[in-house]
Nucleic acid binder design. Sequence first.
DNA 1: CTGAAAGCGCTTACAG
DNA 2: CTGAAAGCGCTTACAG
Lengths: 349, 349
Amino acid sequence: MSDDEHESKPARDRSQVTIIDIARMAGVSKKTVSRVINESPLVREETRKKVKEIIAETGFTPNPQARALAFRKSFLVGLVYDNPSPQYVVNMQRGILDTLGDTAFQLVLRPCDRGDENYRERVRSFIVQHKPHGIILTPSVSEDETLAEILREEECDYVRIASLELDVPSRSIRTHDAQGAEMAAAHLAQLGHKRIGHIHGPKTFRSAHERLSGFRSGLESYGLELAPELTVEGAYTFDSGVSSATRLLNRRDRPTAIFAGNDEMAVGVYVAARKAGLRIPEDLSIVGFDDTPISARIWPPLTTVRSPIREVGRAAADLLLKRGSGSENLEELQSFQLELIVRESTRSV
Amino acid sequence: MSDDEHESKPARDRSQVTIIDIARMAGVSKKTVSRVINESPLVREETRKKVKEIIAETGFTPNPQARALAFRKSFLVGLVYDNPSPQYVVNMQRGILDTLGDTAFQLVLRPCDRGDENYRERVRSFIVQHKPHGIILTPSVSEDETLAEILREEECDYVRIASLELDVPSRSIRTHDAQGAEMAAAHLAQLGHKRIGHIHGPKTFRSAHERLSGFRSGLESYGLELAPELTVEGAYTFDSGVSSATRLLNRRDRPTAIFAGNDEMAVGVYVAARKAGLRIPEDLSIVGFDDTPISARIWPPLTTVRSPIREVGRAAADLLLKRGSGSENLEELQSFQLELIVRESTRSV
DNA sequence: CTGAAAGCGCTTACAG
DNA sequence: CTGAAAGCGCTTACAG
């Protein structure tokens, strides 16, 4: 380096093909090449074809840094999340990456902590600085209306994933948790259980509310009532599952079945049952939610509700990428099938 | 839009502060401001201070897209991985993000599949197109010498995380798996076990080899031998743990303890033991490796080796960011303490 | 130690 | 439907 500072060597000078080379080879202007790249309809079909051929021959790919600078918008898609479950996070990432694939778009991770007072401002600075193409929000941050307002203020496109519709349809992906909980209720009702307990997640999570109300209405359609004294609040954690279940199982009128709001807590119920000397499923049936890997590895294998997280991630990214292309089919992108996975933790009374 | 195509609106025209504004306010040239931003030593202390003050006052942050274009190098750090364990992946991401924090650098995900013939070329196109600041490779892709060669060819900086040193020290982070396996061996030997089985990972993984040889030498230092007939190869999966353990436990001279190469397989050993009618730890002691969440939730809780994945991720990112700053301390960045977590799956014979 | 000019590779704004 | 000019906000290369 002739001058100073920057320590890292510049990338190899493999005289890269640029839009100028393509323009010259096709005998058109840069702008026309640019139009082809950006799929403008305002190019004669013949011209477009020629340019496309040359692009294919040369293997040219437009420089994303240059495009980002000119567009004032980068090719990053930000995932803003606070869900602590590794399985959930990884599945979501996989789904988004399925859609992003080998496009120019890159997935950038932005974990956050709602406990941090500045968390919203951190998201804002990310947006202002990096001008992402869009943001995908998962529960529970997706439920933060103030954050959504900030994104709108900064004119950043986004999609909110949640258990119910929180925003306009084009910015929402619903996960239909209530429906999954209904399936759990039907299963237990059909097995003849009457005294059924439920450990729901923290009330600050919409999913906890949706699963609770879905479970309740599911029981009601079988003429059963979800007894208030058998409905307790957990924290979606293993430990809270243990303590909540211990409370339920210590009652003289203990339930014969417990539906836990997620698998983590369901596994906690196993521990509480063992401590109480109860056999699963002979003395206690257990249903979880999420179908995390542990549900198939624990003994006995856990009956649980599978939520198609990866598909949800795929759909969220689709929504972002297809925006305005007219090809998005909101209906299709927003209908997910939950599934009850019946294993060996449930049995008829 | 006056002309055509691009559907998304340009970002808000909040006349953003640029390097020109800062230069004007400080009464210096753009280049001098640039020098301050890039921490060039070639600026008079007084000038630097003044510029820094103005930067702080205005809240100016240099535009990463513009810098990337001019530098021919982006502010992305790519994580290239193929490890299927969600827990591992998430911990690694967390560690890297700990270091990246609120810097201009962003973490970009590049999962890959070594089964895919083109996987190396996909990594190459990512690099050529996005010109990342650096790449972090985790096992097993980190062990692919051909891939490393491609990165060097493209002059892309990288750090390889592996259970042994595969590259020059400044591009390596060692995880010392052998040492962890030695601790497992010592633990079982001290409990008086003599007939000890080992289910190791696939031979294509260096970690499998390291854990095996560490375990063997650990036993040897207690005068014990790892019997070849009690050493079987698994696939690091739950199912392979079940089948490998079944084979070991069906022997008439079955082992009194099994060390599994990871927790996934260790959990498989639980299932095989249950099927064989063996109690844990009364009839069989089990030790795992990784300390994944399931190890504390399964019954009885699993004794396992904890590998500080998050710290490893932190160190890898440190190595990348501090490159050339002279402040990196290779020694320190590469010494990790593994820890044996003794739970209830092991007992003396 | 500092600066004026040219350039990174694209797109926008305008004109035809 | 197409193009020449200006610009995105920085850094490099050169000069002093």
